[in-house]
Write a protein that binds this DNA or RNA. Structure first.
Lengths: 208, 208
DNA sequence: AGTCAAACTGAACTGAACTCAGGTTGCTAG
DNA sequence: CTAGCAACCTGAGTTCAGTTCAGTTTGACT
């Protein structure tokens, strides 16, 4: 498996790529990918519909890019947060806290990621889409491995009872990311509260 | 809030409605909703594409019907499983076991439900679609309330430490249903094993 | 045998994603 | 300064899956 080293294309000074991504995150996140018209994003950015194809091969290519960027960001945060300590329980707590230390814009990206994650399953017909898809899939696998390693270390040190680390990791991840399906910044429960509650759940799940 | 009493339409002896639903579950579940062509389902059933519109107003209407049926089924199983006992911990265990006591075909339906749950958010423009959507949304809320009640009872009896029951319920549900995103009957981990592991996780999360 | 609703069909329509064949803009090298 | 050229953009046209239309067939029941 070769590591896909995707660097962001060099952006000229006139480039609207960042503006398109921002608008797309807004629309895809609020209204949903299928429900938003590609042309609406062009309108928001202030360019014609066809100009979008200068930056992205397709609507799906834009979506996959957003998803890949979010996966990169959230993996980086995980690595950064868990690298601070060698105590497995503390690392677990730090990982959960890192998962919920996000801006409103990043919440939208997590939501987009969750709502369209099944897109990563099937092969894409166009080249650049497929590249993004594979990069995203690899990141998903890396993130899963990161969590498995976290659990395995805790188990081998005797801090966590020994269980199927892989299934446990998927269960933890599943619980954490499921929050983005229902959480809204405008809702009644503040995110800090959700974060604390989930942190406790994760710890009890794993350590008892 | 009026309870939507959706009865299935009386099916004549020549009706292909059931066959269409079966084929749609197969296709939507295996390939994904967006990736399957509506006409492919007509082909599978052995009718012309336009005949589909005798049974469903649209492709989305068919999807929403599948989702609503699955929500009805899984709620009925929950109610049946948790009604057997008055011990909260045992009820919790029974609920988790019921969630994983499913056939291969029901696994597909759960997957379809999870992958397209965001469809329940926005209003639909056509009448029958909107009816199905609202029925499905109500079922989701009922299921959430069922779980909240389960937790609240355990807390008030002193079996579960008192925490935010609503957020806890969403966390439990999120963990359970997240399994259908990755589980495949052909995979290495048997479902019974997953079920046991998740059951333990839920109990530790809630009771400690 | 005639009636009626359920079940179905081929041809035409719609709209959003996308392609094509160029046109404009502004930086850079000479 | 201006010529070249790559980045950036556009209006007109194409495609294709989903859908509508205007009927036709089927078979249960008087």
């Amino acid at each position: 498996m070769t590591r896909a080293r995707l660097e962001e294309p060099d952006e000229g000074p006139r480039s609207k790529r960042a503006a398109i991504l921002t608008a797309a995150i807004e629309y895809f996140g609020e209204a949903g990918y299928e429900a938003t018209k590609w042309s609406a994003i062009a309108g928001q950015v202030g360019i014609g519909q066809t100009a979008l194809y200068h930056y992205f091969e397709s609507k799906a290519h834009c979506l996959l890019t957003i998803m890949r960027l979010e996966l990169q960001r959230s993996r980086a945060r995980f690595v950064e947060a868990t690298g601070q300590t060698s105590d497995p329980t503390e690392a677990l707590r730090a990982a959960v806290r890192a998962a919920f230390a996000v801006s409103d814009h990043e919440i939208l990206q997590m939501r987009i990621l969750q709502n369209n994650i099944s897109l990563l399953a099937g092969t894409r017909t166009s080249k650049r889409e497929e590249t993004e898809r594979q990069a995203a899939r690899e990141l998903v696998q890396l993130i899963e491995r990161d969590w498995v390693r976290l659990l395995t270390q805790g188990m081998s040190r005797g801090e966590f009872p020994v269980r199927d680390a892989h299934t446990m990791a998927l269960a933890l991840l599943g619980m954490i990311v499921s929050v983005w399906r229902w959480y809204r910044p405008t809702g009644t429960t503040p995110l800090a509260e959700v974060s604390e509650l989930i942190e406790g759940c994760c710890v009890r799940m794993v350590t008892q």
